[in-house]
Design a protein around this nucleic acid. Structure first.
Lengths: 184, 184
DNA sequence: TAACGCATGTAATACGTTACATGATTCT
DNA sequence: AGAATCATGTAACGTATTACATGCGTTA
């Protein structure tokens, strides 16, 4: 039940509307957790019924701004410090990377090049955000997160480039270029 | 629908029973995707009905070994090379790390120390697996995966240690140790 | 023969995605 | 006035988790 705690975490940073939370998932928390508005609005109502959040303001277009209650803050603390973490992950990108070895060298090169372009794109987006963060001089709560993302993408780029080099060596040293790595 | 492709990928490495696939998720693919046996057995039946896998052998205790059919191999190829990837992720551990900034410095230190112990443990397990892999001289399909995991864990250790140092500085330079970073 | 690990299955519940649906406000 | 964006909601469907359930084969 991590959606609940992701919402509490975002509301601990600042009170927000469901709409703003939806964008925070896309912009700040996307690499750790994903949720769309159709999940967020019902969950906010459940959190309110449970007394963990409360409406702290209403604005234009029927919007409600939610904030943490003290028991919401305590629940977040318990989850982060006391509760036994669940370590299970789902990362479709990583799944793809780990299965690329099953392709022919030609297919593998094509797939690796697509992944490289994707990661390069993401990396440069993060660099722009990072520059902006540094220039602002603000101690934004997602500063460390941004830095982690930059380093992760650098690692991913190195690894993908090595895999691509390895796949190119196979394809240019006389080995058949159309045979799978393992004929199983 | 990545479970389907994760299974096809594992069966591309070698034909396996549902039980073996369950363990592969724990041991090899755990950092990319998770699935338990109660999901795997029904999915294997659906894959068989769809003609993507077939029973290639039966063993003791009613076990069936499944292998890829040629259309299963083609489906895997299409997914890896042609299909538009879905990039959404869920990583509860990362979610926790990104929300730690919302805790008091004391709580944050406690949580970071727990995370450090966990990652150190994982890292040493990977090192043992890596040593074994290198010693075996075999070109195992999860060799690159293992290497990625080692580097990722090194990055995570660096980052966590930096966060811990920062949290300790806050707690030892006269600042209140029991106040949240942001009083929101 | 008891315990353990292998091997499979299903039912109930919870969680997540996609599609449908509506209306308010701002900008051009 | 029309388009874009803000802002919320729900229904149907698909996926995942937890708990329950059974039986075979090996080893101590």
């Amino acid at each position: 039940m991590s959606l609940r705690h992701a919402l509490l975490g975002l509301l601990a940073i600042q009170p927000s509307t469901g709409y703003e939370l939806t964008r925070s998932f896309e912009r700040s928390l996307g690499s750790a957790w994903h949720a769309g508005h159709s999940q967020i609005y019902p969950e906010l109502i459940k959190l309110e019924e449970a007394g963990l959040v409360e409406v702290v303001g209403e604005g234009a277009r029927r919007s409600r701004t939610y904030g943490l209650t003290s028991s919401g803050r305590e629940e977040l603390r318990l989850w982060l410090v006391v509760a036994e973490p669940s370590r299970s992950q789902r990362n479709e990108t990583l799944l793809r990377w780990f299965l690329l070895a099953q392709l022919t060298p030609a297919d593998r090169r094509a797939a690796l090049e697509r992944e490289l372009r994707f990661v390069e794109q993401e990396r440069s987006t993060l660099e722009r955000l990072w520059d902006h963060h540094v220039a602002s001089g603000q101690d934004h709560p997602f500063g460390p997160t941004l830095d982690f993302g930059r380093r992760y993408h650098d690692l991913a780029l190195d690894w993908l480039r090595e895999q691509l080099t390895a796949a190119q060596d196979v394809g240019t040293t006389g080995t058949e270029d159309t045979e799978p790595r393992s004929t199983a």
